[in-house]
């Protein structure tokens, strides 16, 4: 049983949808350390930040930190507030909700969210 679960985990691939209807492969799910992110290059030059939390759920948002313009959100720390997962930008620490892309520290700011799935 255990062996089976492990095998499934290591071979599951993460796929992200850069635009409605199309899917692209990001990496093996096991590449993601829970609580940390990685960046993925999208076909049109945009970048996505992909995260996994403690419970194994994955999220993808735009990698660009709207406050500085730098492509760094994938390198922020994942946390949770009121049960909702967020990432804190590594530059000036503003937090973004991983499910909606909304900035928790500034109502006017949000980043794009990309659908993501394990196959």
């Amino acid at each position: 049983m255990t062996t089976l679960t492990t095998t499934t985990l290591t071979t599951a691939m993460l796929e992200l949808s850069p635009s409605p209807g199309s899917w692209m492969t990001v990496c093996e799910e096991s590449r993601l350390t829970p609580g940390r992110g990685v960046a993925a290059l999208l076909p049109d030059g945009r970048q996505a930040a992909v995260f996994r939390d403690r419970s194994g759920r994955t999220y993808a948002i735009d990698n660009r930190d709207p406050f500085t313009g730098a492509q760094v959100l994938s390198r922020g720390l994942v946390g949770s507030a009121d049960g909702r997962p967020f990432v804190a930008s590594p530059l000036l620490k503003q937090r973004f909700d991983l499910e909606t892309g909304r900035c928790l520290d500034d109502d006017e700011v949000a980043v794009a969210v990309y659908p993501i799935r394990a196959v």
Binding site: D44, G45, R46, Q47, T68, G69, G101, R102, A112
Partner: peptide, 20 residues
């Protein structure tokens, strides 16, 4: 090159795609 970051090519796309 900070001008590049503020005017970055992803900017326009981001505005369009954001859930604002």
């Amino acid at each position: 090159d900070l001008t590049f970051l503020t005017l970055g090519p992803t900017n326009a796309t981001l505005e369009g795609a954001s859930s604002r």
